[in-house]
């Protein structure tokens, strides 16, 4: 089981466009990726409704977990994505 902790970089939090970009990237990994607050129940990272309902704000830490081949590399790229201010780009 691979695991990473990362602070949300987007100024509006993990909402709207940033949430959609993250969910798309999680789907592209083809793995079962979960996202949650440290020590709390995680949600399916490929579910846009789940991720939006999580309501992770700017600067807040979230834990990503995944299993299987390439899980470490996949989480590294998702972490890099979450660290960026996705809302400010484009």
């Amino acid at each position: 089981m691979a695991q990473r902790t990362v602070a949300i970089g987007s100024s509006v939090g993990l909402h709207a466009r940033p949430a959609a970009l993250f969910v798309e990237a999680a789907q592209e990994t083809g793995l079962d990726v979960e996202i949650g607050r440290p020590g709390q129940d995680a949600v399916d990272a490929t579910s846009i409704l789940g991720v939006m309902a999580l309501g992770a704000k700017h600067g807040e830490e979230v834990v990503l977990t995944a299993d299987g081949d390439g899980a470490d590399a996949a989480l590294d790229s998702l972490v890099a994505l979450l660290e960026r201010d996705l809302d400010a780009e484009g």
Binding site: A16, A20, E24, D44, S47, I48, G50
Partner: peptide, 18 residues
């Protein structure tokens, strides 16, 4: 470019497993 992200995000909801 303005409408595409809104439509894509809506498509994600349609594909939501939950």
């Amino acid at each position: 470019e303005h409408a595409a992200p809104i439509l894509k995000a809506t498509a994600l909801i349609a594909r939501d497993k939950g």
